Simulated scan of single mutants.
Amino acid sequence: MDILGTVLWAVLLALVFRSFVYQPFSIPSGSMVPTLLVGDYVFVSKFAYGFNRYSLPFWAPPVDGRLFGRLPARGDVAVFRLPADPDQDYIKRIVGLPGDQVQMVGGVLTINGEPVKREPMADLVIDDGAEKLSLRRFVETLPNGVAHEIMQERDDGPLDDTSIYVVPDGHVFAMGDNREHSQDSRMLTKVGYIPLENLVGRADLRFLSIVPHEAWWKIWQWPSRIRYDRTMRSVR
């Protein structure tokens, strides 16, 4: 009976932790390279922006859709439910807040008419398990001082020159760090502006990173596939 009680308490604590505190997510695509790679696993803080029907699925939200709601900060890496298909989770970086004017001009992010500082870095070499890729990399510094890396293969792509996006009240604007390979708020009909009540939480910790491989069930190969330099690192 003691063993059963211990197991039940452990299960209850795990459920509470996952429901109210942190939830694990795996990264399914390369839209957030170099910050997040396919095969990265992150803990997402479910209380960072307050609670809603997506962070607490069993809870009926108040009129405004959030409990203890807080506005994200520019530069946060956030998980949200896709407005067009709430069954899908997306992870992107918040770059625009309610009332902001966001635009891409010649590959450079512009917020409220001011170009965001972008400095070149050495190319990033990524081993995705099948081939090694060398990618053009920059450090981008947002108006609040948050600096993060982005990938920008070119400055004349389809989403490198846009009209001005005016972020509505109660919404944020999110973009992937891999600018040429991200379906994000720049695509209004596919993603668009993110309602605050669609935010699931903020990605805080990359607790594991594994080189992708089709034979995931070969557990004995996992130690050689772990990216130890990316494991147990804060998401920035």
Rank of each mutant, 00 (worst) to 15 (best):
E131P: 05
G69I: 02
G157P: 02
P62G: 13
A73T: 14
D155P: 00
R93Q: 03
G157F: 00
M104G: 02
H148Y: 14
P98E: 09
M121A: 15
G69K: 04
Y90F: 11
E131N: 14
A48R: 14
V95N: 02
D76P: 07
V116Q: 00
L109C: 03
H148D: 11
E131Q: 15
P86R: 03
I94C: 03
V125I: 11
R154E: 13
P143E: 04
G113K: 03
I150N: 07
T141Y: 07
P98S: 06
Q152A: 12
R154F: 06
G69M: 03
R136W: 09
A48P: 11
E149H: 07
A73S: 12
L71C: 02
D156T: 06
L71M: 12
Q103F: 05
V79H: 06
K132E: 14
A147N: 13
A60K: 15
K92T: 00
D123T: 08
P62H: 09
V116N: 01
V139Y: 04
R154V: 10
H148C: 02
D156L: 12
E114P: 01
Q88G: 11
Q88E: 14
D89Y: 14
F80L: 07
D123W: 06
V105I: 08
Y54V: 00
L135D: 04
E140M: 00
M121R: 15
L71K: 05
R66P: 05
R137F: 09
V116P: 00
I91A: 01
Q101H: 14
P57R: 02
S134A: 14
G69D: 06
F51Q: 06
D87I: 15
R53A: 04
P83E: 05
D100Q: 06
I150V: 14
E140I: 01
P115D: 10
G50C: 10
P57Q: 05
V146S: 07
D76A: 04
A48K: 08
D76V: 10
L135K: 07
G69T: 02
A84K: 11
F51W: 07
D123M: 11
I94L: 07
L133Y: 13
V146P: 05
P158V: 12
P158W: 08
Y90L: 04
P158N: 09
D155M: 00
G106P: 13
P57L: 00
L56R: 12
P72N: 15
L124H: 09
E140T: 00
A78Y: 13
E131M: 12
Q152N: 11
L97I: 05
G157K: 03
S55D: 10
R154Q: 08
A78P: 09
E119N: 03
A122G: 06
P158K: 09
Q103W: 07
F68L: 05
P86E: 07
A73L: 14
G107N: 07
A130V: 14
G75D: 00
L71T: 07
R137E: 11
W59V: 05
V102P: 02
R53G: 00
F138K: 03
P83L: 02
R118A: 09
R137G: 01
P57C: 01
G106Y: 15
Y49E: 06
